[in-house]
Simulated assay, not measured.
Amino acid sequence: MSRGRHSPVPQPTPDERALLEALVRRRQTPRGLATRARVILLSTDHPEWTLSDIGEKVGLCDDTVSVWRRRFIRAGIDGLSDAPKSGAPRSIQDQQVEQVVRLTLDTLPAHATHWTTRSMARASGLTQSAVHRIWRAFGLRPHLTSSFQLSKDPLLIEKVRDIVGLYLSPPDRALVLCVDEKPQIQALERGGVTFPMQPGQEERTGHTYIRHGTTTLIAALDAKVGAVIGRCYPRHRTVEFLDFLEEIDRRVPSELAVHVILDNYITHKTKAVQGWLIQHPRYTFHFTPTSGSWLNLVESWFALLSRRRLRRGDFHSKDDLEQAIEAFIAQNNEHPQPFVWKRSADDILDSIRRFCLPYLRTTTSRDSSESVH
């Protein structure tokens, strides 16, 4: 590490560390509080780092890093909170705030799936506006939920390091292509009247439509440049995938090695595809982990295609849809923009570890309790 300023290194207790990790991991944590918690964790995990090293990692200056380290040493977790502002005395006490937060995180209202400001106000004896302010201060949003999918691939770590390595440090004289299928794209003819956008009013369309069939797009995204090779097919079987591989082979200069990133769909692993790879030794397949399609950059391009051309498109036939897709690809390739991958494999795997840690602790505690009884 580079030379620079130092200050006393905080030493959180195991309970404090668990709470700090929870603050960093929880998406609802206010950004400032999460940054301060991360400062303490980095200081503890890397005592040799200077204030500048930590500040560069979290986006703070040396003096600010030093302030939060000293405040944590003096007051623990409470020292990371903002100092009280001047003004009228508080009408809501800490015990009431703690009660609202505890009820929100640890309980559910009767006959409902989540708390509302009205139901929490009845349970806590506060006003709805007070409950709303407390939730906003602690980043609590009971009305929202998100889904996740953890990969159970036994080779998760190896595959993450392999694919991220191709993005961050591509090999010389080689092309990295992200390949996938976007199946069942519907050619929808919008019915009814469309009212164009006006100041203060979004575009409005009717809810009826006519289906004119579907098509499947197989696309290969150049991870470094952002250019796309794409072709539409009526189905996505092995024969169509092999035809697309031949299309890639015709368009990629013969002197380049080709690294193909793709998912575990069955058509990518058939004997016919394996035979094609033997006949074309310059190609190497890199499979994403199971439930790890987010590692394939072409998924981001598919999302762009859907958002800009398909979702609100009006197509009178399947040919009309395919022509629109081809035109979008041609326009993309006139001025290609790559999707720049920034996170390292270590960062990704560390995020997965932090995400799983509370579950592992709960499971271990439950197993220990059951063994005692």
Rank of each mutant, 00 (worst) to 15 (best):
A174W: 00
L175V: 13
V179C: 15
D180S: 05
E181L: 12
E181A: 15
P183A: 13
P183W: 04
Q184F: 05
Q186C: 06
Q186H: 03
A187S: 06
L188H: 01
E189L: 05
R190F: 07
R190M: 03
G192N: 14
V193A: 05
F195R: 15
Q198V: 04
Q198M: 10
P199F: 04
Q201E: 13
E202M: 12
E202R: 15
E202I: 05
E202V: 07
E203G: 05
E203Q: 13
E203H: 03
R204Q: 15
G206Y: 08
G206L: 10
H207N: 12
Y209K: 08
Y209M: 08
Y209Q: 12
R211M: 09
R211Y: 05
R211P: 04
H212L: 13
G213W: 00
G213R: 05
I218G: 01
A220C: 01
L221W: 05
D222P: 08
K224G: 02
V225R: 04
A227T: 15
V228S: 01
I229D: 11
R235C: 07
H236Y: 12
R237Q: 11
R237C: 06
V239L: 06
F241K: 00
F241L: 08
F244I: 08
L245E: 10
E246D: 11
E246H: 11
E247Y: 09
I248D: 04
I248R: 04
R251N: 14
R251E: 08
V252F: 02
V252A: 13
P253H: 08
P253D: 14
L256I: 02
V260I: 15
I261W: 00
L262D: 01
D263Q: 11
D263T: 05
D263Y: 02
D263N: 13
N264E: 01
T270I: 10
K271V: 10
K271G: 00
A272Q: 14
A272W: 03
V273E: 08
Q274S: 11
G275Y: 00
I278K: 12
I278L: 12
H280N: 12
Y283S: 03
Y283I: 15
T284E: 06
T284Y: 00
T284Q: 09
F285Y: 10
F285G: 06
F285R: 09
H286A: 03
F287E: 06
T288W: 01
P289F: 06
P289I: 07
T290F: 07
G292N: 11
S293R: 03
W294L: 02
S300Q: 14
W301I: 02
F302W: 08
A303Q: 02
A303P: 00
L304Y: 05
L304E: 11
